[in-house]
Structures are given as structure tokens and as C-alpha cells.
Simulated scan of single mutants.
Amino acid sequence: MNKSFLIMVDAYSKWIDIHVMNSTTSEATISKLQQTFATHGLCDLIISDNGAAFTSKEFADYVKSNGIEHRTSAPWHPASNGCAERAVQSFKEGMKKIKEGTIQEKLNRFLFNYRITPQTTTGLAPSELLMKRKLKSRLDLVFPNIEKRVQERQQKQKHYHDKKSVNRQINVGQGVFARNFAIGSKIKWIPGEVIKQSGPLSFHIKLQDERVIRRHITLNCRRDLKCEDVLLVAG
């Protein structure tokens, strides 16, 4: 395509970064390396071919100043850097299969497809090894997200429950009506004051005659009182 490309591959995850190069000087190469390092951090070791950009004093000074070890493959023997050569081959084959778009658009599509495809060496996609997560693609739209569906249904259930539910929060010191279970008494509800919470929905109530009883919250209401105005407690 009448362009030069700088191809970098992570030996562990097989993640590939590719830059279109308008120039192949050491300065331009270092600039592209800095872009990659700005995302992933500095590497420990660079293995490259013997191109002029990698054998210059400027490049040697750059890697040395950043604590990076630099090794070059044997002259005229690219197989000694097999990982990089396989990345170059995959790149060339992948770009030929993409017929439409600019060079950058083709490159973006290639990188996306490559990064989400499991590798034969590792058994995982480069994105999973490098980022510890899968990158979302259009294929994910075919399969339902079970976790998301469950969360949405739970939110709907909570919404409908909250619309119909009555406030069941009672605080110590709050006045309430407690169900009267005394045999023969015509008074079904007696006033009192909450003095202690003994469970999530259980409370100790002090009556006007100083007796202390324990009751549990209920949603029942007296006909002459509104549920939203007073909280009732029953046994």
C-alpha cells in the first residue's frame, strides 16, 4: 500500500500495536514507541531487526535512559525474531482481506479483530491476557447478557414493590399504635412509644401504663388512620 508500518508485539499476550510511519527515522520511531509506552508503560526488553532506526546512537540513548534492554536479531535471519515475524505476516494477510476503507480504517478493523481473537499459543485473546477482560464486539449482541438482564428485572421488581409498599422505618422514641391481644378487651390498638429495636422489624414498645411489650411491624391499618401518617405495630 506504499506505506511503512511500525509493528510491535507483546511477547506475553501477543497484543499488537501498529503505527503508520511517514518516516522511518530514529526520531519518528521513538515518537511511536512513546505513544505505546504512554498507554502500557515501559517494557523491559526490545528485540528488533537491524534497521537503521534501531541501530542509531539516538535510539540506543533512548532505550538506555529508560532502562530498556535492546537486542537485535541476527543479520539476514528474521526467523530469530519469530514472534515479530509472525505478527508481520498476520498483519499483511489481514489487511489484504479488508477491501473497503482508508488505510487507517483497515488498520483499525484489523487490530480490533486480531485483539479479540484467541491465539493458538495462549488459548486466549490478547485483550484478555493484557487487560484481564474481553473487549465487546458486535458478536456479543447475538448472545444475551444474562447478568444485565437479571439486574434489569430486579430493578423493575424493586420499582413496583416500592410503589406499593408502605414506609416500615421506625425510630426509637417514635409514637406508634400496638396491637392489643388482651382477651375480652374491646380496644384493638393501644398507643405507645418505641424504646428499643430488637430486630430488623421487631421493637420494644412502652405503653402509657408503663408496661413494655414487643411487637413486629405489620402493614395493617386502623380504618380511622392513614398508613402514610402513622406506623402500626402488631404482634
Rank of each mutant, 00 (worst) to 15 (best):
69 E>R: 14
153 R>Q: 11
91 F>H: 01
138 R>W: 09
192 G>L: 08
212 V>E: 01
121 T>N: 11
104 Q>A: 14
100 E>K: 09
46 I>Y: 09
78 P>M: 05
159 H>S: 15
161 H>A: 03
186 K>G: 15
78 P>S: 09
156 K>H: 08
67 G>C: 05
91 F>E: 02
213 I>P: 05
200 P>R: 11
128 E>M: 14
208 Q>C: 03
12 Y>H: 15
78 P>H: 04
25 T>M: 12
162 D>W: 06
69 E>I: 14
171 N>C: 08
32 K>W: 02
59 F>P: 09
30 I>E: 11
191 P>V: 10
161 H>G: 04
140 D>Q: 07
81 N>Q: 13
132 K>Y: 11
35 Q>Y: 08
9 V>H: 08
89 Q>G: 02
113 N>M: 12
143 F>K: 12
65 S>Q: 13
72 T>D: 00
233 V>K: 00
202 S>H: 07
214 R>F: 04
211 R>G: 05
60 A>D: 14
6 L>W: 07
116 I>G: 00
234 A>S: 01
163 K>S: 13
110 F>W: 15
143 F>N: 12
79 A>V: 03
204 H>I: 12
13 S>G: 03
205 I>H: 03
198 S>A: 05
48 S>C: 10
57 K>Q: 13
77 H>D: 03
145 N>Y: 06
213 I>V: 10
50 N>Y: 00
150 V>P: 05
12 Y>R: 13
60 A>H: 13
100 E>M: 07
24 T>Q: 14
127 S>V: 15
199 G>N: 01
123 G>W: 03
209 D>P: 02
50 N>G: 05
153 R>K: 11
78 P>F: 00
69 E>N: 12
115 R>W: 10
138 R>M: 13
138 R>V: 11
23 S>L: 10
130 L>D: 01
211 R>E: 00
80 S>A: 09
39 T>A: 11
184 G>R: 12
166 V>P: 06
172 V>S: 05
114 Y>T: 04
169 Q>C: 04
33 L>N: 04
229 D>P: 04
202 S>I: 09
92 K>W: 03
145 N>T: 05
193 E>S: 08
211 R>P: 02
23 S>C: 12
56 S>W: 07
223 R>C: 06
59 F>N: 11
176 V>N: 10
49 D>E: 02
194 V>F: 07
57 K>A: 09
144 P>V: 13
212 V>M: 01
172 V>D: 06
179 R>D: 06
198 S>D: 08
86 R>T: 11
101 G>S: 00
147 E>D: 14
34 Q>H: 09
54 F>N: 00
229 D>N: 09
19 H>R: 08
29 T>Y: 03
3 K>W: 07
121 T>F: 12
72 T>S: 04
177 F>P: 06
215 R>I: 01
116 I>V: 15
217 I>R: 12
14 K>Q: 15
233 V>E: 05
1 M>N: 08
38 A>V: 01
1 M>A: 08
47 I>P: 00
218 T>L: 09
97 K>E: 07
139 L>G: 09
194 V>Q: 05
134 K>F: 02
139 L>F: 09
202 S>E: 06
26 S>Y: 04
208 Q>Y: 06
